[in-house]
Design a protein around this nucleic acid. Structure first.
Length: 448
RNA sequence: GGUGAGGUGGCUGAGUGGUCGAAAGCAGCGCUUUGCUAAAGCGCCGUAGUCCAAAAGGCUACCGAGGGUUCGAAUCCCUCCCUCACCGCCA
């Protein structure tokens, strides 16, 4: 009984929501852009991978059909409205209107058919548009996968660690984490920090929030962690990536996969004044991700978790400023690693490796000696108006125009934790912390 | 969880079946008056879709969402969502 009720509730919600989306064609990519420059759109999408050309063609074919159906329907509606007004006048004059009423009624079936046809065409077109990602910016390097991501900056050098060890071994020997008991509570993929380990996590959080709010000009936000479905659609996690999300309450609410979702959606459905922009928010939230399909990949220790802490930076700005805002956002994130003295490199994601809604993305990767590898700790993206369209986030110009949105990790905590332990490891097994953390942690060294 | 009240344009707020896309006010834009400011007067002022090569202009849809009744729905009916108030419970 309970399950049936929950499923029904979910289904109703989905239907209601998709119908709402269909009403507004101003979503995802601008359909006008597709109509007016199909070849250029196709060429840019082709750099992401194969298959989008046919999707664009399909969208455009439906577009022609849909508009034709709508035009026909609108003609009938106009006629109905005209006759109904006649009926009103006749009745007001106490005259017989039954002939006109019969005439209008006789057309209702035809109108019904056309209405359904045009709604179906709009829904089909919308469904196809949902599966078309954002257009990469012209300057983004073209490539098929992560191997084609150019390194554009390197900071610092790989630290001289005498005999590198994995962070799990380091953390366990120092009593910083309790993996076995974390499994007892929640299963694999969850961390339990203990003692100095928990204090280090808290120290990092405070350090990051203080840095971004006091020195980089971000406003601190502490948002809800449970998020409504339409907000998940707004930033692009849904509907395509629902399998990666944790849903609760029968699918009505989702655990935040990143603070990007609640924070960017703060201004959804709003019309902002240009003088308010740019808006810059920094927020800490835990992040919950199913990591479906990633079993066996980087699953060691703290590197890939179902729950991890992250401080996220979010910007809402004028379209003409978003390129520059991405550069400064990335610089703000890099500053974290510089202050912690951690060696890192910054790469620009090539067209084939970029996220679905992004127009340009920089990844920041920190060096982890125990892994002998770079770990992604931040991903900074300019979404241009892709998310703003989904959440109807505009600003007042000559007319209402869509804002640009950006976000970047500032940074993810767990992998930062890994890099700190593995980079600060001393021959005696203790870990030396960078000076910037001393006041937050209350000590310079973590030892037994 | 219980009870009650509500959801109308950028905002406030009228509107219980027929020129209502929606009064009025505020905010905004333009013009006039004015030494500046302030004030006053006049006009304009929702969103989206669609037709037209385009402009001008026309048409359609939208009063929380979905469905229903009707020739015609902001207005009547049903379902859902949300907000607020009070009570209960509780960190």
């Amino acid at each position: 009984m309970v399950i049936i009720a929950v499923l029904r509730g979910h289904g109703i919600f989905c239907l209601a929501h998709s119908a709402k989306i269909v009403q507004s064609v101003q979503l995802m990519l601008d359909i006008r852009l597709l109509r007016e420059n199909p070849d250029s759109v196709k060429a840019r999408l082709a750099t992401r991978g194969p298959g989008y050309e046919s999707a664009v063609d399909a969208v455009l074919a439906l577009d022609v059909e849909r508009r034709s159906a709508e035009t026909n329907l609108q003609g009938l509606q106009a006629e109905r409205n005209r006759l109904s007004k006649e009926i009103g006048k006749l009745r007001a004059a106490k005259q017989d209107s039954s002939a006109l009423e019969a005439e209008v009624k006789a057309r209702s079936a035809e109108m019904q058919v056309l209405t359904e046809k045009s709604e179906k065409l709009a829904a089909d077109q919308h469904g196809l548009l949902l599966n078309i990602p954002n257009l990469p910016q012209p300057g983004v390097p073209v490539g098929a996968d992560a191997s084609a991501n150019p390194v554009i900056r390197v900071w610092g050098e790989k630290p001289a660690v005498a005999s590198p060890r994995d962070h799990v071994a380091i953390a366990e020997s120092l009593g910083l984490i309790d993996p076995d008991r974390a499994v007892k509570i929640s299963g694999s993929g969850f961390a339990c920090y203990t003692g100095a380990g928990a204090r280090l996590e808290r120290a990092l959080l405070n350090f990051l929030l203080d840095l971004h709010t006091r020195e980089h000009g971000y406003t601190e936000v502490s948002p809800p962690f449970l998020i409504r479905r339409e907000c998940m659609v707004g930033t692009g996690q849904l509907p395509k990536f629902e399998d990666d999300m944790y849903g609760v309450d029968g699918g009505g609410l989702f655990l935040a996969p990143t603070a990007e979702v609640p924070v960017t959606n703060l201004h959804r459905e709003e019309i902002l004044q240009p003088a308010q922009l740019p808006i810059k928010y920094a927020a800490y939230t835990p992040c919950f991700r199913r990591e479906a399909g990633s079993a066996g990949r980087e699953t060691r220790g703290l590197i890939r978790m179902h729950q991890f802490d992250k401080v996220e930076l979010v910007k809402i700005c004028l379209p003409e400023n978003s390129d520059a805002e991405l550069e400064s956002l990335t610089a703000d994130a890099e500053r974290v690693l510089q202050l912690l003295g951690l060696h890192y490199r910054t790469i620009v994601l090539c067209t084939g490796d970029m996220g679905f809604g992004s127009a340009k993305t920089y990844d920041i990767e920190v060096w982890a000696p125990g892994q002998n590898a770079y770990l992604e700790v931040s991903s900074c993206s300019n979404f241009e108006d892709y998310q703003a369209r989904r959440m109807n986030l505009r600003f007042k110009g000559d007319k209402n125009r869509f804002c640009h949105t950006l976000n970047g990790s500032g940074t993810a905590l767990a992998r930062l934790y890994v890099a700190l332990l593995e980079s600060g490891l001393q021959p005696d097994g203790s870990v030396v912390l960078p000076p910037a953390l001393h006041p937050y942690f209350g000590a310079e060294v973590i030892k037994k």
